[in-house]
Design a protein around this nucleic acid. Structure first.
Lengths: 229, 229
DNA sequence: TTACTTAGTGTAAAAAATACACACTATATT
DNA sequence: AATATAGTGTGTATTTTTTACACTAAGTAA
């Protein structure tokens, strides 16, 4: 986060790439800056780490201030600290990615003063970003691409109950490629971390799909044994 | 790195887990602290990031000061910043792992004042470490375990010319398990990144093994296609 | 009732992973 | 010169995993 620059030798901040999935597209939350430098540019949300916060707490706080939500899944992935990355001084920033399902619609809340507004923008069509935020975003996407192959993070982007087609859709968007339906189902079911529900999808004008849920218990029992996509 | 505490709100440092392989064991370089806190304890080498250094430059410098060597392979892997991790104030540290081959014997050089001495200690028998350095080390080992499966980092621990048995040994030590000789050879050769030399091992009192070299060109041609162990 | 749209399913072929044991070769020893 | 020693180097059969591929079933809308 870049807006406050106290007169210290260096500032330590956290920036978040918050990925959201609305059932159709993969988006990230960007804020439009209201202050120099990069006034009117889009930027990743971020902030300075408080003196008594842990790094994870700080990232949680930032996400809470943006969305009003607690308990968002997130993980730190890289520190950026080139001396020239901030025009006004030394700012070392630790990047987090975070994953959230969109659609509740009341996730966005009034945001702090350094931003005019925040917006969900599809990753297929991002504007130019302030600072080195393009680099930070790129690395974040790369990270979740890798991560989704081995860890059950796709479920963070979906509602609690979801169809296999929706799940496949998430994988396809993150990995950036089409997957074969039958092979996908075979594989994802074989991991044994999905619970098939008795329920069906509702409100669709075609055959309703079976709903599934991610079964944390079963996953815990795998005990580190890795999923491999 | 923990020894200097200027009166700032927070200090940003880098700590390094430098892994070395001497042909037999996997070791890490630890320093014995000469200052409070944790005087006389073993700790990971580290230092504060200078105002005009990038993060990687800072890590390189730390490694150079310790070993007199430049160009050591290294990579940042995690930031540790719990408010309580340093007894005397807020220190956020970014951890790097680094890999080096031992055996040249002149790698260690006089070190800075906060340490009495530096020593290579086998990872199978580490002492208690200062601060949260055990946690930092654990995560570093975990990281290279993961990384060695997909990236050609094993070669950083070996001399330029090595035998397949030595290479297998590195994999076994890092992964912490025995591998089948024939299957290992089949697989590692199938990646197509090794160049078989005309040379043989010397000075052994048994059948001399063929020497190999990591072929960077061939690896570059794979163009991101991942090795998978 | 028909048209439309997505759900859901199986199999054969190819590729990759695994398990497994012995003869070869260079040196050191007597 | 013969022998002991210690690590090198190799092949195959079996199992498992991955891939490619297309049609019927079910529900809704007209």
């Amino acid at each position: 986060m870049e807006q406050i620059l106290p007169h210290l030798d260096s500032v330590f901040s956290i920036d978040c790439v918050l990925f959201g999935f609305d059932g159709k597209e993969l988006k990230i939350l960007l804020i439009e800056r209201n202050e120099e430098p990069f006034k009117d540019w889009w930027a990743l949300p971020g902030n300075i780490v408080g003196p008594d916060e842990s790094l994870d707490q700080s990232a949680s706080r930032i996400l809470y201030e943006l969305t009003g939500l607690r308990g968002i899944y997130m993980e730190q992935y890289y520190a950026f600290g080139d001396p020239g990355r901030h025009p006004q001084g030394r700012v070392i920033t630790l990047a987090y990615y975070a994953l959230i399902r969109l659609g509740g619609d009341k996730e966005l809340r009034p945001i702090s003063t350094y931003a005019k507004r925040a917006n969900w923008l599809p990753i297929t069509d991002l504007p130019k970003l302030a600072f080195d935020h393009q680099k930070i975003y790129d690395k974040g996407l790369e990270k979740i691409k890798r991560r989704i192959k081995h860890q059950p993070i796709a479920f963070e982007l979906l509602p609690e109950k979801f169809t296999l087609t929706q799940l496949q859709h998430v994988y396809e968007l993150v990995l950036g490629k089409k997957l074969d339906k039958r092979n996908f189902r075979k594989k994802i079911v074989s991991f044994g971390v999905l619970k098939e529900l008795d329920e069906k999808q509702k409100g669709v004008s075609y055959r309703a799909a079976t709903l599934y849920r991610f079964d944390k218990r079963k996953y815990a029992k795998l005990f580190g044994k890795e999923i491999s996509f």
